[in-house]
Write a protein that binds this DNA or RNA. Structure first.
Lengths: 142, 142
DNA sequence: TCTAGTGTCGATATGAATGATCGACTTACA
DNA sequence: TGTAAGTCGATCATTCATATCGACACTAGA
């Protein structure tokens, strides 16, 4: 399951993607539009910023904007920030690989093999879902 | 990520699947073979029993066996017991659907659409992975 | 019928993660 | 230089994950 944090991040980013990106949007406004607790959103945006998904401007007239084109930001990118690796086990993670402690031989582990297939399938789908597509879709529906 | 509980369940079930199933195996023996804390395994097996994945015999000479053929038990079945729905959100779960509280219209929710695709992909893979296949594979490797 | 060996079940302990909030600080523009 | 913005560290409440304990119920075999 997604964490609440992930839901908030997705909603906030869709808000940012769905507007004229020429000037930044204040945290408070994003929080209101995306229905996210203001202070919590702060933390989330900071993490997204560290990964380059958004960028910020300080001081007056400051706020947040996407860090790159909405076409280049995928759901996979976002979920990796908020919820960690997509994989069901560290031993099948592409971006955060780690050996299982109690696995004596990865090569023949029957569990690993199944999890690897699951990871590939999930990642393939989520890496194909961009923010731009999400915005387009929700606009078309109105 | 999988919970520890899920890893334990998978390992224990592979142990049960990988033996002559004519007589039950004691919890203590399963715990040892699968390297799972005995008391914790108790709880896990009870839950698996409720879902029909294993069955038990009480009293002397008692113990656990698979509840059906290893060919009919999928990783999806097991993970649903230990970790809940495979879906990333209740609103896209097949077996445990629930409406999002703060989602005003499911039909046009751009997040939901992405999560639905992810669920389908994951479920498809995990429902294709049986205990029997896992055992066969690990045997072939030796 | 007794008893030893087995699963069952409810309660509880503990630590970690999650979700959320607060207040002080820094930066930038007018 | 004052004010409006983001930044950052700390903290807190609650829930969840992991694990353990002890008493109980059931059954085969002596």
């Amino acid at each position: 399951m997604l964490s609440q944090k992930a839901r908030y991040a997705l909603r906030a980013l869709i808000v940012l993607a769905d507007r004229d990106d020429s000037e930044p949007m204040m945290i408070a406004d994003v929080a209101k539009a995306a229905d996210v607790p203001r202070k919590f959103l702060e933390q989330i945006l900071l993490e997204l910023k560290k990964r380059g998904i958004v960028r910020s401007t300080r001081g007056r007239q400051g706020g947040y904007q996407l860090g790159k084109s909405a076409k280049e930001i995928t759901f996979a990118d976002i979920l990796r920030v908020t919820d960690g690796p997509l994989a069901l086990s560290p031993c099948v993670s592409q971006h955060a690989y780690q050996k299982c402690e109690d696995c004596f031989d990865e090569a023949i582990c029957p569990i690993r093999k199944a999890l690897l297939a699951a990871r590939d399938a999930t990642a393939h789908v989520l890496e194909g879902q961009t923010l731009a597509a999400a915005v387009t879709q929700s606009k078309r529906a109105h």
